[in-house]
Amino acid sequence: MPDTSSAPGAPALPWRALLVAGALYLLTWTLLPPLLISSFPLDVVESLSWGREWQWGYYKHPPLAPWLLHLSYRAFGAAGPFLLSQLCIAATLWLVWLAGCRLMERERALLGTVLTLGVAFYGHPALEFNHNIAQMPLWAGLGWALLAALQDGRLRHWLALGALAGLGLLTKYSVAIVLACLGLYLVLGPARRALARPGPWLALGLALLLLAPHLYWLWQSDWLPMAYASRRAEAPGGSARLGALSFL
């Protein structure tokens, strides 16, 4: 693992200024939108109607994002959904930075993290909290957890990987794509040596344990989200097919 400390004589990173700038950024994107718009975006309204029911699944998506949205709205009112979005963005950037620090110097990791804000999804689309925004820190967290587990071999990192995998699949099914890529990396690359230790299997067990109530709900509901996607895919018009893919 590379040394993440600054070189002797190098100027220290301006952490206080960065934290202040980050806090101002978060507050701006949290407090201004409810003052400037007359209603919530469509996805927010839809998820708010789901989250208050506290079900283990909904006809289009898994349950975690609506639950969090409902809690944020109850706690912070109209600013809650916007705050939740920005917390997801902040968590994503923090996890990107943590992963970067394991691969390069802290200064370069910070630069890469700041440049991440140039991706469109970190800006205006984040005003509409939905399953896409909710899964962003989980995608970043999965990458960091696997990297940490392979570098350090500590059980807590494998358990973090399992928890993030389970929570990710409770957020949006597209997290399975990331998990498939990580699984292929473990099986086909030099990292497969880790499979001889208990960590990966404990991670798998924890992920399945967290996902089990939703899997039971899917079975009880005759796999309702998949049926929804299938019906949308069979509808005429390309927009319907795109809508069917949105459940991923």
Rank of each mutant, 00 (worst) to 15 (best):
S5T: 15
A7P: 01
A7Y: 06
G9E: 11
P11R: 13
L13R: 08
P14R: 00
W15D: 10
A17D: 09
A17V: 01
V20N: 08
G22D: 04
G22Y: 00
A23M: 10
Y25T: 04
L31T: 04
L31R: 04
P33D: 11
L35Q: 14
L36G: 07
S38C: 00
S39D: 15
P41I: 01
P41R: 01
D43V: 05
E46F: 15
L48T: 08
L48M: 13
S49N: 14
W50H: 09
R52P: 04
E53W: 12
Q55T: 06
Q55R: 14
Y58E: 03
K60G: 14
K60Y: 14
K60M: 10
K60W: 11
K60A: 15
H61S: 15
H61K: 12
P62Y: 09
P62C: 05
P63A: 10
P66V: 02
P66N: 06
W67G: 07
W67Y: 12
L68T: 07
S72P: 01
R74L: 14
F76C: 11
F76Q: 11
A79M: 07
G80L: 05
P81G: 11
F82Q: 02
L83E: 12
L87Y: 08
C88M: 10
I89D: 08
T92R: 03
L95G: 06
V96K: 02
V96W: 11
W97M: 07
W97K: 03
G100A: 07
C101K: 15
C101D: 06
C101L: 12
L103D: 13
M104A: 13
M104V: 08
M104E: 12
R106L: 00
L110A: 11
V114T: 04
V114P: 00
L115N: 08
L117P: 14
V119F: 12
A120G: 14
A120R: 06
G123F: 13
G123I: 10
L127C: 01
E128A: 15
N130F: 00
H131P: 02
I133H: 01
M136T: 14
M136H: 11
L138Y: 09
W139H: 13
W139S: 12
L142T: 08
L142D: 07
W144C: 03
A145W: 01
L146I: 06
L150H: 05
L150Y: 08
R154V: 06
L155E: 10
R156Y: 01
L159I: 10
L164F: 06
G166Q: 09
G166H: 10
L167S: 14
L169C: 14
L170W: 09
L170C: 10
K172H: 03
Y173D: 02
Y173W: 13
S174I: 09
V175S: 12
V175L: 12
V175R: 03
I177T: 13
L184N: 10
G189K: 05
G189E: 04
P190H: 02
A191I: 02
R192S: 14
R193M: 03
R193V: 09
L195R: 03
L195C: 04
A196R: 12
R197A: 08
W201I: 04
W201Y: 05
L202N: 03
G205H: 06
L206A: 11
H214C: 00
L215Y: 11
L215D: 07
W223S: 02
P225K: 02
M226K: 00
S230K: 08
S230Y: 14
A233L: 15
A233V: 09
A235P: 08
R241P: 00
L242Q: 06
G243Q: 07
G243L: 09
L245T: 03
F247L: 13
L248E: 02
